[in-house]
């Protein structure tokens, strides 16, 4: 089954139809998705800014990471769950939306950025934990993360517009 075929099958499931046609369900999930931005992205940005050495410079990087990570992970779980539900409610149109595809691509890049960061410069973190300005590779990871998340937010907002939709 193609991805489009899968989306078409998904769209015809009773649960997807129910969510799509719900009066409260969809807007509530959408609102939770948008407002959880404050928790998930807000704290992720604060960590990125710490990696760049522009805020919380007197707080060890390990403490910023360790104390904020539970909130970031909890926020991420809410974002992924509500995001998946929003896709589930409108699968075909979303799949064909160019901004949705861009968002998924940027999300994968943000994930790759985290994976590379954890396998490289983060390993030597105890050497620069107290540095007000971390080494270049850590600043690079923070900067790339900031840029990608900004792109993800913009692309996410634009999913509401079908300017460049592909036709099925």
């Amino acid at each position: 089954m193609s991805l489009l075929g899968f989306c078409q099958w998904l769209e015809n499931t009773p649960a997807s139809i129910a969510l799509h046609e719900s009066i409260w369900g969809y807007p509530v999930i959408e609102s939770v998705h948008v407002l959880t931005l404050c928790v998930f992205l807000g704290l992720t940005l604060m960590f990125d800014l710490r990696l760049l050495g522009v805020t919380l410079v007197r707080t060890p990087v390990s403490e910023v990471a360790g104390r904020l990570m539970p909130w970031i992970i909890a926020g991420f779980v809410v974002m992924v769950t509500t995001g998946a539900l929003l896709f589930f409610a409108i699968p075909v149109k979303t799949y064909l939306n160019i901004f949705f595809r861009l968002k998924v691509a940027f999300l994968l890049m943000a994930g790759a950025n985290v994976a590379i960061f954890q396998r490289t410069i983060w390993r030597s973190m105890n050497q620069w934990d107290l540095a007000s300005v971390p080494p270049l590779r850590a600043r690079l990871a923070g900067g790339v993360s900031l840029a990608l998340w900004a792109a993800i937010v913009v692309a996410g907002r634009m999913i509401a517009y079908n300017w460049f939709d592909k036709t099925s």
Binding site: L37, C38, L41, G42
Partner: peptide, 13 residues
């Protein structure tokens, strides 16, 4: 929306 994220982060920290 981007401002919302930054405000959220600053307020929450």
């Amino acid at each position: 929306l981007l401002g919302l994220a930054v405000i959220g982060g600053a307020v929450l920290v």
